[in-house]
Design a protein around this nucleic acid. Structure first.
Lengths: 63, 63
DNA sequence: CAAACTATCTATAACGC
DNA sequence: TGCGTTATAGATAGTTT
């Protein structure tokens, strides 16, 4: 997506890599939430950022 | 996406819910892979389908 | 610097075989 | 039932504020 097609390889620029991480992390969490609701499945998603922060999403159909 | 705007709620039709699960599961795994490479982060993704099957993605930047 | 914008790319809902 | 196509909604790379 975006203005240009992006090659799937490590983003060398530190700032840009961090910005992209923030954006895509949000998108990935949203997608995980959506599939858990739409399809009534249990989903667990874990991301460990280079800075040591962890993002977690857990969606389950029992709620 | 798709032909119509989709409400984020359980898909009632069993067949359609299964089809949507297959498609979105693939999309979600791909996204997880991409963020792990682009941003050099460790990512774990787990999905438990209603039929009992489990899908796992694990991407880490040590490889 | 981070938040918002927007042009463009990608994912996917409905459809067709 | 499953796989490929098409039209469109959604995500996002680069830009602007």
């Amino acid at each position: 997506m975006g203005r240009v097609k992006l090659q799937i390889k490590r983003i060398e620029n530190n700032t840009n890599r961090q910005v992209t991480y923030s954006k895509r992390r949000n998108g990935l969490m949203k997608k995980a939430f959506e599939i858990s609701v739409l399809c009534e499945v249990d989903v667990g998603l874990l991301m460990f950022s280079p800075s040591g922060r962890v993002s977690v999403f857990a969606g389950n159909n029992k709620r």
